[in-house]
Design a protein around this nucleic acid. Structure first.
Lengths: 231, 231
DNA sequence: ATATTGCGTAATGAATGCAAAAAACAATGT
DNA sequence: ACATTGTTTTTTGCATTCATTACGCAATAT
């Protein structure tokens, strides 16, 4: 079935390089996981030699990886002193959530304009799943579905710069191991807001969805800061 | 006048380290400048050995700096192949400006709530200066004053995460050497919009200022993309 | 003549070694 | 007993060296 002008991969096409991940990039990924999953606690000192041994690499690529993580503010480097897993201040947490609220609003506005029918069905599906987890009081599954909804809307906005920035800020907040929705009432309220968001999205009402998502995140900000001990 | 409990610097206080910039951090700064000021052109290949010689450092700290710049998307690294000054695609430029428009709107909204009288006076001063440069057709000075206005508003928003993100995106766009306002009419329109923005800010009308700033940037996006040859 | 294969060269990637800075500890003096 | 100073040890910072990969050119075969 092969002909000279079919759709098979054209190996003569120019750059199309196979990018085998470099070691330092793999280390970045590994440390991302360690930090966001809790293998490295906020405030913890990172000993280069020790960590290099644990990862079975030399200090050189590890140091390159740590510089990347510092640029993403996941670790904080003090020259000639040491590297630490970033511990955000109250103000930084406040500011980051506030910025996220603006990105969420923008995601909602753009997604309302650009989402396809299939994507909308995916969001609806994740939404229904989330409602189920809520009724079953399955908090971890609820969080996961929640994240998925916001991610789907973010993708539907079709703006990669927005998406990258959003993910980067999300990674910074993740190590906090956020514990809101601790009261039944607040949880119910969050679910109600999601119902409204779903309606606005299906009506493709950008301003409404944007306002809802912004408000949703600002409430999360307040909830997180409320039960966050400053130590 | 020295007493035991005066306000002099307490040298016994704990970390308070003097952070002497490390070499790789200086290299990052230097390359920032080289890229945004045009010493390194978009698309240009970076030869590690050669650049290390030019900067009179070894490849190790240079490589660390390049990883940081890659995290900021100012350079693009292809493993085992080479490092290049990032050349943005049309889509990336579109997305980045679009995201910037959201950040500008948010800056405007927050600044309207939080700006002090002194800061407002500074903005007014920069605004008047910009008008002067416009009347004298001094484009470089106009750009500078323009940047200063947006920067002052951004600072007045009092959100460091917003500010850092804004500056990072700005750096990415800077190497494009943007040339809009090429027609007298568009320039005049931009100035008019700035007058409106100034009024909204002085009236502390957040929604109005936000909407104006968003629109202002989206128009800039369109202008830039309009006279941007894809090669 | 063109395409392909093989070799030499130059680039990037990573590990090791050495210098400098800081922290921890011990010793000494008050 | 406490503070202070000197010494040792640890850790970070950078340069150098070695390994691996990719590119360029020539030689050869079709």
């Amino acid at each position: 079935m092969q002909t000279s002008d079919d759709t098979a991969l054209d190996l003569t096409a120019r750059p199309l390089r196979i990018e085998r991940a470099a070691l330092h990039d793999k280390i970045v990924e590994r440390l991302h996981d360690l930090i966001t999953e809790g293998g490295l606690e906020p405030g913890e000192r990172i000993n280069e030699r020790e960590l290099a041994e644990r990862l079975a690499v030399s200090r050189t690529p590890l140091r390159e990886a740590l510089r990347v993580l510092a640029a993403e503010k996941l670790v904080t480097i003090s020259p000639n002193y040491g590297t630490f897993v970033t511990r955000m201040t109250r103000q930084e947490i406040h500011d980051t959530f506030e910025l996220m609220s603006a990105l969420e609003r923008f995601s909602g506005e753009l997604a309302s304009l650009r989402i396809t029918a299939e994507e909308l069905a995916d969001v609806r599906e994740a939404h229904e799943a989330m409602l189920g987890h809520w009724q079953r009081h399955d908090l971890p599954a609820y969080y996961h579905a929640n994240q998925r909804i916001h991610d789907l809307i973010n993708r539907a906005a079709r703006n990669d710069a927005l998406r990258q920035t959003y993910l980067s800020l999300n990674r910074r907040l993740h190590p906090l191991r956020l514990s809101s929705n601790r009261s039944e009432a607040k949880w119910r309220k969050a679910v109600e807001e999601h119902r409204d968001m779903m309606s606005a999205l299906e009506a493709r009402d950008g301003p409404a969805l944007g306002a809802l998502m912004e408000r949703h995140l600002l409430e999360k900000r307040d909830a997180v800061l409320a039960d966050w001990a400053d130590g």
